[in-house]
């Protein structure tokens, strides 16, 4: 797997020794590095979390950053930033994720997650939040 351009990652003050350790970890790890792959906008992500609270995604999903509810009818979204294909099937792109959270049965025929009352821009914000989950 090619190393990514670290300048695209969210900026954080990193001490040189930690940077070196992170670099070594990157070289040795088979898994994605512990940072979100899609560099989503923080403001969009914040709007996304509030949209998720408003429509009640937590009724079925455990979502990092949402204290309540933590429903168990559908899969937990802990570690969602590290998943492979969306819902095990769709290419993991922001556009696909936004389409899926808004109208899952349309994005993935047969999906049992219902369409949710989100506008297109809200769905993009929700996708931004999900990509920013960084809980590992």
């Amino acid at each position: 797997m090619p190393m990514r351009d670290r300048s695209k990652l969210p900026l954080r003050p990193v001490a040189p020794v930690w940077a070196m350790m992170a670099g070594l970890a990157l070289l040795s790890a088979c898994k994605q590095p512990p940072a979100s792959r899609i560099d989503a906008d923080a403001a969009a992500a914040a709007r996304g979390l509030s949209a998720m609270e408003t429509v009640g995604c937590g009724a079925c999903h455990e979502i990092p950053g949402l204290d309540w509810p933590k429903g168990r009818t559908a899969p937990s979204l802990v570690g969602f930033d590290d998943i492979g294909p969306i819902a095990g099937q769709l290419a993991n792109t922001p556009a696909n994720l936004a389409a899926f959270v808004r109208n899952a049965p349309a994005a993935k025929p047969g999906s049992l997650m219902p369409a949710m009352p989100l506008s297109e821009s809200e769905a993009r914000d929700v996708a931004a939040y999900l990509y920013r989950i960084d809980d590992d």
Binding site: V55, G56, C57, A59, C60, T73, P114
Partner: peptide, 8 residues
């Protein structure tokens, strides 16, 4: 909504 009703 439909989703929260399913979850409930």
């Amino acid at each position: 909504n439909h989703g929260t009703l399913m979850g409930w």
